[in-house]
């Protein structure tokens, strides 16, 4: 019988801990919720601040990890990705 490491619930105890860790990192770096005005979005518009700015690279990575690991997806819903399944 295999050990069910992360528990049966959707978010196991460990992932809750990880989530909390991320959340506190966010808080401690002074990221209180303060959405920018239109003219303050210049830095956010930079390429290096985009999610998946390089689509080809994102697709190649998705394909590579799909061939190596069980988990897949998370950055966009099917079809848009590498066509791997």
């Amino acid at each position: 019988m295999k050990l069910v490491f992360f528990g049966a619930s959707f978010f196991g105890r460990r992932s809750v801990l990880l989530g909390q860790a991320l959340f506190f990192v966010a808080l401690s770096s002074g990221c209180a919720y303060n959405p920018p005005a239109a003219w303050e979005r210049g830095d956010l518009a930079k390429v290096k601040m985009k999610f998946d700015a390089d689509r080809l690279d994102a697709m190649a990575a998705q394909h590579t990890y799909f061939s190596k690991e069980a988990a897949s997806g998370g950055t966009g819903v099917g079809g848009g990705g590498c066509g791997c399944n």
Partner: peptide, 27 residues
Amino acid sequence: NHFIASSGDALRTSYRFYSDSFGIRAH
């Protein structure tokens, strides 16, 4: 994604939780 104004650098981080009916959990 966090922009560091003093240097113009960007730190991009992500966390993914995955679970499926095969019994796999991944982080």
